[in-house]
Design a protein around this nucleic acid. Structure first.
Lengths: 111, 111
DNA sequence: AGAATACTGAAGTATTTACTTGACAATCAA
DNA sequence: TTGATTGTCAAGTAAATACTTCAGTATTCT
């Protein structure tokens, strides 16, 4: 029941690549084999498999091999971790931005 | 009033670096000069300046030079763009995950 | 069995990245 | 003016990244 902790560095890195985000978008439509994913991408099967490894390490996709075909699907854990990071930081950022606003206001009043 | 559109690729890339996230965290406390930022990071001033350029292009920080000191502070635009990306995708992902659940349930019933 | 399919693994390459060094420019302080 | 502070610019480097090719290995089809 205990999932490995998700590395936020790895997660952002995974999402920082256009091709990997395209893969995620396609997987939102339906689970798919590696070659089905590769078909419209214009890169080799090997390259796609490499991207999938990175996406899997970030808990953004889950893959499972049955017979000779590996089926890939979206996994929510990575996405959830990202949302948690965002919400953790939003509060801090908002606080600090508010404080900055106050400081600027004070500075404006100051003389 | 028209801000340049934020490149999500660039944004994720900016956030995918540990040092850059550390810079952001420090800037949440208060606006700071480049050398103040560099001090605890153990890297050269030049390196920090380079990170700041990347953060600025992603609309995550704003910098302004007055006299010889460049003051850096958090800018909300990049963060807001990230939140928008997340919320846009959350709905799609959730829909697809729900649909996946249905498909699995159907499959389970099927025979 | 033989051929096609679906991937896997190892190794190589071009580009990008995260840094560095060192020389310089501008500003402020004594 | 002299000297220290604060940052910038141009180049260079080592490692990481996003690919590639080529040679396998299972697995399914006929």
């Amino acid at each position: 029941m205990k999932a490995p902790p998700i590395d936020i560095d790895r997660l952002f890195h995974a999402l920082g690549d256009h091709t990997r985000r395209a893969i995620l978008d396609r997987l939102c439509e339906r689970p798919m084999s590696v070659s089905a994913l590769a078909a419209p991408l214009g890169i080799t099967l090997t390259a796609v498999a490499q991207h999938l490894q990175i996406l899997e390490m970030s808990a953004l996709v889950h893959t499972e091999k049955l017979g000779r075909v590996r089926t890939c699907r979206i996994e929510p854990a990575g996405f959830t971790a990202l949302e948690r990071w965002i919400s953790d930081h939003r509060t801090v950022w908002q606080q600090r931005l508010d404080r900055l606003g106050e400081l600027l206001a004070e500075g404006g009043d100051q003389h």
